[in-house]
Design a protein around this nucleic acid. Structure first.
Lengths: 165, 165
DNA sequence: TATTGTTATACTCTATAACTATA
DNA sequence: TATAGTTATAGAGTATAACAATA
């Protein structure tokens, strides 16, 4: 009853956007000279994957190559990212955070995490443990190998109730 | 250890954007009415609050009046929303969904929920129940007008819950 | 010829400022 | 005068198409 895929999807569809708005709002308040959310996500990716190519970053963030190229233009202009030709294949670019780029990311992210922690501090510890566990479960569902790209078949589909629900 | 506010915040900050990206991507993929996320949220709000004014919708979605006016232009042009002068105060407009607007909302939302359900179907039922429970806990943290430990009021929690409806 | 990325161009979305209509 | 919306205009962000450089 409370564990059907549809019930779970309903709950996720209601709550995740709510929490996401809190995250985005806080990041907007904290981020440095007007860093957009995709730019911030790019910093986050390069923090974990230094030396990534433009295609790799674009694929991860979900932008086209031209769009990501322009986004990187802005980060390079602010001296948050370096862009160099890759040794061994001069077609590729190697992207890395500068010290300022690392600081910009760490500062905003820490502030946002602190904000969330203050929100979550209203819960009993046991409930927070439940939330942590659920996040791990969601990660396994949404990073699974079956990369869900448009049109690609996924696990067995449930009823596709349609219009006029 | 696993239940500290900071640990919980860290998990939320990692996973929620991941899931949100999947939600937004799937909603965008519903090309039938080709609705933007704010347009979809507007339909969701009007589904629950028929007859709302432009200011009310703009405040709820988080757009300025001119931006919302243009957004509504698009919805009216597609015959998903009606816009009439309010009886008793001709300055205000009364916004309502048409039958097609209701169907567009229900279709897109159902498709997104179905997509999420297929993703979540990879989990055991007990784990889905854990996710549902955690969503309820997060709702209590992110919708309640909680005061912080230090006594400071939290920043105004925006309302992005509209996706849920 | 295939790939990796950039430039050119256009469209969407949003904001601020100025304006109209109504109260 | 104050309020509710709209129109005018501009800026950011993204996409597709065409191009350049390298493999």
């Amino acid at each position: 009853m409370n564990d059907s895929p549809d019930t779970c999807a309903e709950a996720v569809l209601e709550i995740v956007p709510l929490v996401m708005r809190a995250i985005r709002g806080e990041m907007r308040r904290q981020r440095t000279p007007d860093l957009s959310v995709p730019q911030f996500r790019t910093l986050a990716f390069l923090r974990q994957q230094p030396g990534a190519s433009l295609s790799e970053v674009a694929g991860h963030i979900g932008l086209t190559l031209p769009s990501m190229s322009k986004l990187i233009d802005g980060l390079v202009a602010r001296r948050l990212v370096t862009r160099q030709a890759a040794p061994g294949d001069r077609r590729r670019v190697t992207l890395e955070l500068t010290g300022a780029g690392q600081a910009a990311f760490d500062t905003a992210r820490t502030a946002t995490r602190t904000y969330l922690a203050r929100r979550l501090a209203t819960l009993p510890a046991a409930d927070r443990a439940s939330v942590v566990q659920a996040m791990q479960l969601l990660r396994s569902s949404f990073t699974a190998a079956h990369e869900l790209v448009a049109g690609e078949p996924l696990p067995p589909a449930g009823e596709e109730a349609a219009v006029g629900a």
